[in-house]
């Protein structure tokens, strides 16, 4: 069994794992690093976005990333989003808009939304839908997620 040492930065912290390089980032995050915010909902096909993390600042499906590829990379998961007790505006907006029902898709959707606002602080509906197109939700119908992103954008604009 070949293993490899991978040094990466996870939520701002230097992290090293020694494991089979073809294991996915999703598996390693959940099982080795106990960061269980990422979920396996579609069987690792990249069809649902519940495993979304930011890789070097860009949203990706962690189920489609091999851990061996992560040397030197920066990974941000949902757990790294809030600073101490302070929720990220996107998290706050999701709560306040009622965009969270069962919550299984929520970490992925929050990360995808954050990535959007990082790049585009004033998105319109079309842009929000496109940014969330890779995050399946079966509970909410997406309406309140879209309004949550608008709300977060407002908050960020007002410097909150």
């Amino acid at each position: 069994m070949t293993t490899m040492q991978v040094n990466m930065i996870v939520n701002g912290r230097s992290t090293t794992v020694v494991t089979e390089p073809s294991r996915t980032l999703l598996e390693v995050l959940r099982e080795d690093l106990r960061l269980t915010g990422v979920k396996d909902a579609c069987g690792g096909e990249g069809e649902c976005g519940a495993c979304t993390v930011l890789l070097n600042g860009l949203p990706v499906n962690s189920c489609l990333v091999m851990i061996g590829q992560m040397e030197g990379c920066e990974i941000e998961t949902i757990e790294g989003l809030s600073k101490g007790d302070q929720p990220d505006p996107v998290q706050k907006a999701f709560i306040e808009e009622g965009a969270v029902q069962c919550g299984y898709c929520t970490p992925g959707a929050v990360m995808a939304s954050k990535a959007l606002l990082d790049k585009n602080p004033d998105p319109d509906d079309e842009e929000i839908r496109a940014a969330l197109a890779g995050n399946l939700c079966r509970c909410t119908g997406y309406s309140k997620m879209i309004s949550a992103v608008h709300r977060a954008a407002e908050e960020l604009k007002n410097g909150n």
Binding site: T36, T77, I78, F94
Partner: peptide, 23 residues
């Protein structure tokens, strides 16, 4: 009213324990 659910924070922060997360 629109009372925000108490469990929302654990869900948006990734700390909510679904059955597969329980160790």
């Amino acid at each position: 009213r629109r009372e925000p659910r108490k469990e929302s924070w654990s869900k948006v922060s990734g700390s909510a324990q679904y059955t597969a997360d329980i160790v």
